[in-house]
Amino acid sequence: MRNGADTTLSSSNDHHQLLRFLDFFLRLSVIPLSVASLWVMASNKQTNDAYGKVEFSNLSGLRYLVGINAISTGYAIASVLLLCLRCFNSDWYLFISDQVMAYLMVTSGSAVAEVLYLAHEGDRKVSWSEVCSYYGMFCSKIKVSLALHFVALVCFIVLSLISAYRVFSKFEAPSLLSEEVGEQE
C-alpha cells in the first residue's frame, strides 16, 4: 500500500515540475517575441513618391501595440525574476497579472487587426481607399508584427491557464455531504 502512495506522490511531483518548467519556458519565450513584435512595428515606415510618408506613429492602434509589447516585455522579465528569486508566494500575483496581460494583448492585437483590415480593404462608405497597394512593405511589416504578437498572446493564454491551475488546485472541492446532512435533519 505504501508503494502505491509513493508512486502517486512521485507522479504528482513530476506533474508540478513539468508545469513549473513550462511556465518558466513560456515566460522566457514571451520576451523575444514581444521585443521582436515591438521592434518590427516601431521601425515600420515607408515613403511613397505620390502619397508621402507613413509611419507606425501615425496610427493610434499601432502605437498601442508597441506600448503593450513594451509592457508585456517588462512584465515577462519581472515575472521570470520573481520565479527565480522565489521571495514570496507569488501564485495569486501571477494569476491576476497573467490574466491582465492576456486581455491587454487581445485588445492591442484586435486594434492592429482592424487597422490592417482597413489598410487592405478600405472603407468605401466613408471614402477610404485601400492603401496596401501603395504601401506594401508597411502592410507586410504590420502582418509580421501582428503574427509575433499573436504567438506571444498564445503564450500568455497558456500562462493564464497554468497560473489558474496552480492557484485553484490548492483548494478542495466543496463537500456535498454537509448539505445532505442538513437537509435530512
Score class of each variant (00 low, 15 high):
L161I: 08
C155M: 07
R124H: 11
S140E: 13
M137A: 13
L62F: 13
Y51T: 10
G4V: 13
S127A: 13
E55Q: 15
V80L: 02
M1A: 14
L18I: 09
K53V: 14
S140P: 07
F171M: 03
Y75R: 00
S10F: 08
E121Y: 12
H149Q: 13
W128I: 09
Q99Y: 10
S11Y: 10
L94R: 06
L28K: 00
L148D: 02
V40S: 07
Y165Q: 03
F95Q: 06
A113M: 10
L83G: 01
T47V: 12
Y117R: 14
V106Q: 04
M101R: 04
G109E: 05
D6Q: 08
G74W: 00
V144T: 15
A111Y: 05
A102R: 03
D49I: 15
V30E: 06
L153A: 04
F56A: 11
N69R: 08
D49S: 14
S160H: 00
L65Y: 05
S178K: 05
L85E: 06
A152L: 04
A42T: 05
Q17L: 14
A113V: 06
S60M: 06
V100A: 09
E179M: 12
A164C: 08
G61E: 14
L177K: 06
L153W: 07
L94T: 06
V35A: 13
F88L: 03
D98P: 02
N48G: 03
E185L: 09
L94Y: 05
I157W: 07
M105R: 10
Q184A: 15
G67E: 14
A50M: 13
V154G: 02
T107A: 15
S110E: 09
N44D: 07
S129E: 14
C155L: 03
L161H: 02
L33M: 05
R124G: 06
A76E: 00
C155F: 06
V35W: 03
E130M: 11
G136E: 15
I162H: 02
V80W: 01
Y64R: 12
G52N: 11
S72V: 03
L159S: 04
D91E: 05
